[in-house]
Design a protein around this nucleic acid. Sequence first.
DNA 1: GGGGAAACTTAACGGAGGTCAAGGTGGTTC
DNA 2: GAACCACCTTGACCTCCGTTAAGTTTCCCC
Lengths: 243, 243
Amino acid sequence: MSVSGKSSDCGNCFTCQTRGKTEWCVLSDDELEIVDQGKVCREYMPGEVIFHEGDDCRGVHCIERGLIGVRKMNAGGNEVLLRISHPGDTMGYRSFLAGDDHNNSAEALEPSVLCFIDGKTVHSLLAMNPALGLRFLRHAAQDLNAAEEKVLQTATLPVRARFAHLLLVLKERYGVVDDNGSLDLELPLSRQDMAAMIGIRPESMSRTIRSFEDDNIAHFSGRRVHVPDVKSLYEELEIPIGL
Amino acid sequence: MSVSGKSSDCGNCFTCQTRGKTEWCVLSDDELEIVDQGKVCREYMPGEVIFHEGDDCRGVHCIERGLIGVRKMNAGGNEVLLRISHPGDTMGYRSFLAGDDHNNSAEALEPSVLCFIDGKTVHSLLAMNPALGLRFLRHAAQDLNAAEEKVLQTATLPVRARFAHLLLVLKERYGVVDDNGSLDLELPLSRQDMAAMIGIRPESMSRTIRSFEDDNIAHFSGRRVHVPDVKSLYEELEIPIGL
DNA sequence: GGGGAAACTTAACGGAGGTCAAGGTGGTTC
DNA sequence: GAACCACCTTGACCTCCGTTAAGTTTCCCC
């Protein structure tokens, strides 16, 4: 778990596997040293919460290992799973930069290791290296596109299409497509988390899964999914039943 | 319409009414001069499109006057109105910064004047003045919060609550609340555009309006709305009927 | 291994809201 | 003023999905 000898369960930014893919890759060695000195790492068990909606936002979290779910809930207690974040992703930078409290919560979905970088350090790095801000800006732009896409889908697509879309998104990271177009997928999410991702109840998730089984679109066994023909998922997206 | 003598219908950045509220307010006079020289302004009539989804994004648009609707549509032709943008807002900066084509479309809802600033100019200003990037970053962070809030609402709130929320948002800019808590509102949107904002069909918009009338929550006459007690709108938001 | 909690599934029911079709209203043009 | 058009409203119908309430399976933890 530990790479440097500095802290019991703390990685080292210079040797971090995810370094090349993160916003921080634009930092010079001197600047990275500042991050490395200032960060605090911790391991989280599944279900453990990294921060809650409404918490004071004191800095950013960078995922070293594991899988994190970002949730948001409303007054009535209803909850959606906005997205899942992976190693290399930096979390909480938006609330931090906007100067707000956290406006969603983060929870470990697998055993995960996160590094916390405090606000003062982030601010001085942003001042020191303008490229860092631009990287975050680009990232925010992409997140925003994804969020607007999700608004559109939630408002206009029926549940089957939203679920097909979710499977297609998960395919990119968790799936294998073979030569004849069949897909095998190992889901990183529980049924209820999948339901929360597409904005439906667990009961509807079960029904949708069964209707996919009945239509021979996909076969589910625990978290293993087999899709005989990926094309059939794309066809689901096209179904013109509007809002 | 024209302030400088430079171009027939082109304003002047130095005297622009919206200047203080925009991202561009961090620019020095020299830098603003670059914007002013490089920009191209144009008037758009209601219904006229500024850019389409999928168009090549060559720069950003800054709204000098008027009201612009930002729309996004899916393969099936269903459309949502993601937000409305006002004088001082800069549009298209996200697609531009992410290096993508436009991923939504912009259409004038009122007679409007927009200034176009080409990509080369924006890039050189970002390089010249890091504070500009940070301002855009903060703006993107706020937009992202709004978009995620909208995902949550669309997925978990019934139509009445979403409509009550829309009226409360429009209240901030277009409404007047008097001493005894009653609200008068002049809607900037047609019924079908309001429907597109909360992700429903025009028929459902009509039905929802009528149910608000029946319950004495709000009274509609064309684009004039009278709400006897603003509290009743807040109460609509709380209704626990979940998704 | 056994017991309990959480996750998942299934079925029956009902209501919110989409669809379709028809009619009303208002604004613009000749 | 007539004709046209877009926008809006209304009603009838029906489907999708939330609700409720069992029941089943899985997974921990003693």
